[in-house]
Simulated scan of single mutants.
Amino acid sequence: MALKKTTVMVEEEDLRAVKEAAEREGRSEAEYFREAFHIVALRSRRWDGDWDIPTLDFGGPVSAADVDAAVTDAVAEKP
């Protein structure tokens, strides 16, 4: 994907934190900003229309204890 150059105003404290993290982790500051923009883009995405999410019928209500027991059994059966 092509990159587009932009200018962004940020709080000095935030910029200092990014600079420190970049130096500490051996990443570029630009990489952090691209990651931040990507996270915001994903979080703000909206989809048109309804989602086709299947409905599951367990034949009655499922309690927290039922879920705990199912998870415990699944973990215990792990190879």
Rank of each mutant, 00 (worst) to 15 (best):
P79R: 12
R16Y: 03
V18E: 00
I53H: 05
A21D: 08
E31S: 09
E29T: 04
H38N: 13
A76Y: 06
K19W: 02
G49P: 03
A36F: 05
G60Q: 04
D57S: 13
E11F: 02
R45K: 14
Y32P: 05
A2E: 08
K78E: 00
A36L: 11
E23A: 12
H38S: 14
A64M: 05
T6V: 15
D68Y: 02
T7N: 11
H38V: 12
V18L: 10
R27L: 15
D14T: 02
R16S: 08
E77A: 14
S63Q: 00
Y32M: 04
V8C: 01
M1G: 07
R24K: 10
F37I: 13
R45E: 12
P79A: 12
D52Q: 11
G26I: 00
W47K: 09
P61M: 09
A36K: 01
I39K: 04
A76Q: 13
R24H: 05
R27W: 11
W51P: 05
E35G: 00
R43L: 12
F37W: 03
P79T: 09
A76M: 12
L3G: 07
E12G: 13
P61F: 10
R16W: 01
A70T: 10
G60W: 02
H38I: 11
T6Y: 11
V18Q: 01
D48K: 09
S63P: 02
S44T: 15
R45F: 10
M9T: 09
K5W: 06
D50N: 14
A74D: 09
A74G: 15
V75W: 06
D52S: 10
R43W: 10
A36G: 11
G49W: 05
I53A: 14
W51R: 12
D48P: 03
T55V: 15
A2Q: 06
W47G: 09
V8E: 01
S63D: 03
G59D: 05
K19L: 14
E20F: 12
K4T: 11
I39E: 15
K4S: 09
A21K: 08
V71D: 02
L3P: 00
A17Y: 03
D48E: 13
A41C: 05
E12R: 06
A65I: 07
F37P: 01
G60L: 04
L15M: 13
